[in-house]
Computed example of a mutant assay.
Amino acid sequence: MTQFYASQNNWKTITYLIVRVGLGSYLLIHALINLINYDEFIQMAVQYVPEGSELGFLANFTPIVPLLEFFIALMILTGLYARKSLIWAIALGIFFTALFHYTGDIQTALTHSYTLILKVGLFYTLYYNKFSADYYNLWTTHQAIELEMKEKEEQEEKKKVMDSLLGL
Rank of each mutant, 00 (worst) to 15 (best):
P50H: 05
P50F: 07
E51K: 15
G52V: 13
G52Q: 15
F57N: 07
N60H: 11
T62L: 13
T62I: 15
P63W: 11
L67N: 13
A73R: 00
L74H: 05
M75H: 02
T78C: 01
G79A: 03
L80E: 04
Y81M: 05
A82V: 10
A82N: 13
K84Q: 13
K84A: 13
S85W: 08
L86F: 09
W88V: 04
I90W: 09
G93Q: 00
G93L: 00
F95L: 13
F96K: 05
T97R: 04
A98K: 06
A98S: 14
A98L: 10
L99G: 06
F100N: 11
H101A: 08
H101M: 12
T103Q: 09
G104M: 09
D105A: 06
D105I: 01
A109M: 10
A109I: 06
S113P: 06
Y114R: 07
T115L: 03
L118Q: 13
V120P: 00
L122Q: 01
L122P: 00
F123Q: 01
Y124G: 05
T125F: 14
Y127L: 09
Y127V: 11
Y128I: 07
A133G: 02
D134K: 08
D134N: 07
Y136L: 14
T141K: 15
T141G: 13
T141I: 11
H142C: 05
A144K: 15
L147R: 14
M149Q: 10
K150I: 08
E154T: 01
E156K: 14
E157C: 06
E157I: 10
K158N: 09
K159L: 14
